[in-house]
Amino acid sequence: MFKYLLPVILFFVLCGFLFIGLYKDPSKVDSPLIGKPAPEFSLPRLEQPNDLFSEKEFLGKVSILNVWGTWCFACKQEHHILLDLAKRNIAPIYGLNYKDDTEQAKMYLRDFGNPFVSNAVDQLGRVAIDWGVYGAPETFIMDKKGIIRHKHIGPLTLEDVEDEILPLIQNLKNEAS
């Protein structure tokens, strides 16, 4: 009996794997940076080019880093989500202005609202390479030690914020610093 059942069982196991595969988004690749300290960098601030923005900014608190650019359509899509997240005042949101025109970036924030505490300007995109960025928008969450704990690829939705981002930030806030 078992002899005949075995191929059937194997067949369904294979089907199970393929079925799970159907619901996985191949454009979302796990970042090897999760669990590692934020990569070092030093970039001018959008607001104050003489003042440098470095990864030390993330120490001592739970923080969010959002990679964006005015050329990036999906960033516009998620902009209101970021504004909403900023209003909740749960963690500071920093921006990495990626391969953008600085003047246009300033204008964009003036026109559509500014969810960011501060922005680092990565005009060449070299720092973004160190952060493993491959498609804006991307959102990183760092714990109090400045270690990357989460990366979200693509535009944030309200569900992402409610179900993933907020609970995670709450957990990280409860961790000892």
Binding site: V29, D30, S31, P32, W131, G132
Partner: peptide
């Protein structure tokens, strides 16, 4: 490359 973008 692998350190930044993963083994993929």
């Amino acid at each position: 490359m692998a350190d930044r973008y993963g083994d993929f």
